[in-house]
Design a protein around this nucleic acid. Structure first.
Lengths: 230, 230
DNA sequence: GTATTTTTGCGTATATACTACACATATTAT
DNA sequence: ATAATATGTGTAGTATATACGCAAAAATAC
């Protein structure tokens, strides 16, 4: 096996969080090196003997002190030789979601600072991180249509309107509330809790929960989630 | 940037070919090293200064002398530390299709031998190549439903029945010929050529062509391809 | 405490898309 | 000539998606 290969492998993560009807991504501020003080996606080099998945979890822990609710591989970026000025680096990037319970950021140990950045005014970032974010955002939008992934961005108990707003906010599309509710309820994987939401004006809303196990069972029997809009 | 990382990066490709109503994948026979003489997916280490895409094309050229018709990134395998006995290696794997015009294999220079392996009786392969093939095969099946990718496995001019057979063969499902034809024709991106196929018994078939440009135009206007079966 | 505003909760009619299904036609083989 | 083989086509029934408006429950304003 040839031994002179000098290409590094890094992992990077695009972590989405949803709060107060807005979508955020997690950014960290570099502590060292030529990119010091710049805001970038959490991530870093994979260690010897470490799996890719382990590396992502470790970096998220070290840099942002965060646990994600959902994680999947997004894409591997390696067609721009000079994406990192220090060395040829290939980035295996990941797509992650946090639920609001874990939205609070602990102090980061390996990063200078951490923040939630509203995605709609993301600044220009170093490396190809804007490209990675775009790719992840497209994936998120697509997945909302064919996988019940919105629930991973909401608290365990949520009013129906929150789910509606999540869809309209992220997809930037209007929605027919009646048809949407009918469709979601017809899948039969969300349950009415007997609590009601009290806050704010207007009629108090029923709270619902997403039944993961029931969804998996239904999925095994061949149903597939799909949401379209008018 | 830490300098002791000792992980190699390879690319591997699952190349599908379709001929005589059967689906094949491309395998090559290792020429050197501890895996000598074993059949594996085409691929190899990425060279310094080389992009991932370039690396795949190069390996396919060197090992199988083949040009693919369609190529996309599949998945990056790096969660099994010991997938290669020689060193920790991460495989960025690709999904590719060849059309029948390029189905003939030239003599390979970097491989001992090359062959088309019928996918339905793929033997056990070294590394995690069976896993990679499974992943690619799932991707192919999924894509047949939502992307007009079947045409990349057929010659430029083809009778409708070939397209039907491709679907039934790969998806292992029955199909209603009338509804299928109606659906495909309704998309309006395949054209009747004025040639007919002569071979064999039975009524001669019209030959059709897939109009890539028209498909792209339609796609831009928001139509999306989708094929379901009864 | 009454009126106004805000938000939730719900049903039906219409249009569109999917499914099921059978027989005539053009050619080769006998 | 007759049989065998593969292609080519239409319609009715069912299911799914879309369009659309008003009453109920609470908070807020007066």
């Amino acid at each position: 096996m040839q031994n002179n290969q000098n290409i590094k492998i890094a992992v990077d993560a695009v972590v989405f969080g949803y709060q107060d009807n807005a979508l955020y991504i997690l950014l960290i501020q570099q502590k060292y090196g030529p990119y010091k003080d710049q805001w970038v996606l959490p991530g870093g080099l994979v260690q010897n003997g470490e799996t890719l998945t382990t590396a992502v979890h470790r970096e998220l822990q070290e840099e942002a002190g965060i646990k994600v609710n959902y994680l999947e591989q997004l894409y591997t970026f390696g067609d721009d030789i000079n994406r990192d000025q220090r060395n040829q680096v290939i980035s295996v990037s990941y797509f992650a979601l946090v639920n609001p319970e874990n939205f609070k950021l602990s102090a980061a140990t390996d990063a200078q600072d951490v923040k939630w950045q509203n995605i709609s005014n993301t600044p220009t970032l170093p490396f190809d991180h804007n490209l990675i974010i775009d790719t992840a955002f497209k994936r998120l939008k697509a997945k909302l249509h064919y996988q019940p992934i919105g629930f991973d961005l909401l608290p365990k108990k949520f009013p129906f309107s929150d789910l509606e707003h999540l869809y309209t906010t992220i997809l930037e599309q209007e929605i027919d509330r009646r048809n949407f509710r009918k469709k979601i309820l017809s899948f039969d994987f969300i349950k009415k809790s007997n609590e009601k939401q009290k806050t704010g004006s207007g009629r108090p809303a029923q709270l619902f929960t997403f039944d993961t196990n029931k969804y998996k069972a239904l999925e095994k029997n061949g149903i597939h989630f799909e949401i379209k809009f008018a």
